[in-house]
Design a binder for these strands. Structure first.
Length: 278
DNA sequence: GGGCAGGCATCGA
DNA sequence: TCGATGCCTGCC
């Protein structure tokens, strides 16, 4: 990864597999927004960042220390996605999906934020999910200053655990509110540790998460893939299911054919079926 | 205005 | 064990 510091920016040589629009709009995250000046602004991992693609480089408005410690892991910059695309292109469909989704990277997000966000995502649309998550942060998250602007961090479970559903009415999250509060309490009371789940197998982590009310197979898979760094998880939502039914024998399809890359394969397939031709 | 959206829990067979 | 149904809300 080649980069240089320029004033208060880090200028990164743009990898072949780095497309900000695809990364932020492929459905894995809910707190990144494109501004009119071409900068993407996001809050993640307790930090705010603006970044902009400038030809063959990407400008990160952050210190080189934050770039190294926070954003390199967050953007999964240590992984060779060109090699991943080659490995998962095991048939014409995944080859097309991987080519179409070239530039996507799986963000290594905060576990708690990811769990909550995907609890909110159930039976919901992106616009509304983003609205609910944003209101949750503004209402209960700490303020953080960045380049003269005020942003809001995602509230930790401790901030929510003691609240009642009526306190979260203005989120307009509907029946998902209770699920969020319950998950926060399970964590605060020590019955569930997301940190411990980082060090167990993908199957064990999914099993533990589905113990939570309002967390089924799909949400648990998203939480472990995007929040616990378990890149072999394979969330199947209605779109991916549609793709599998159309291009494979749904009875015998097994995501383990993609091995450790299954989660990335899933994201290419998801992005392709939603934004591509077939 | 009612169908539906990137699920889940519950209930009945 | 599996299929049907209700669930909050908001946007077609």
């Amino acid at each position: 990864m080649n980069y240089r510091v320029e004033g208060s920016s880090v200028i990164m040589e743009r990898p072949e597999d780095f497309d900000a629009e695809k990364i932020f709009e492929c459905g894995q995250c809910f707190r990144w927004n494109l501004q009119e000046d071409g900068y993407w602004t996001g809050v993640a991992l307790g930090h705010v960042l603006k970044l902009r693609e400038e030809g063959d480089t990407v400008r990160f408005l952050c210190s080189d220390d934050d770039f190294l410690k926070v954003w390199m892991p967050y953007f999964d910059l240590g992984r060779d996605y060109t090699a991943v695309r080659a490995r998962i292109s095991i048939d014409p469909f995944t080859a097309k999906a991987a080519e179409f989704g070239k530039g996507i990277r799986i963000l290594q997000q905060d576990a708690w934020e990811t769990l909550c966000s995907f609890i909110v995502s159930q039976c919901n649309n992106i616009k509304r999910i983003k609205g609910i998550v944003e209101r949750l942060c503004v209402l209960f998250g700490d303020q953080i200053a960045y380049h003269g602007e005020v942003h809001y961090l995602f509230p930790p479970p401790e901030r929510l655990a003691h609240l009642e559903e009526k306190d979260l009415e203005s989120l307009r999250a509907g029946y998902r509110t209770g699920y969020i509060l319950n998950a926060a309490r399970e964590i605060v009371q020590g019955r569930l540790s997301l940190d411990i789940l980082k060090n167990v197998t993908t199957d064990k982590a999914i099993e533990a998460l589905t113990e939570l009310r309002g967390v089924g197979i799909k949400v648990a898979n998203c939480a472990v893939l995007f929040g616990l760094g378990k890149i072999d998880a394979f969330p199947v939502d209605v779109w991916v299911r549609r793709a599998i039914e159309r291009h494979y024998d749904a009875e015998t399809f097994d995501s383990t054919v993609f091995g450790e890359d299954a989660g990335i394969a899933q994201q290419y397939i998801f992005y392709y079926i939603r934004n591509g031709q077939d």
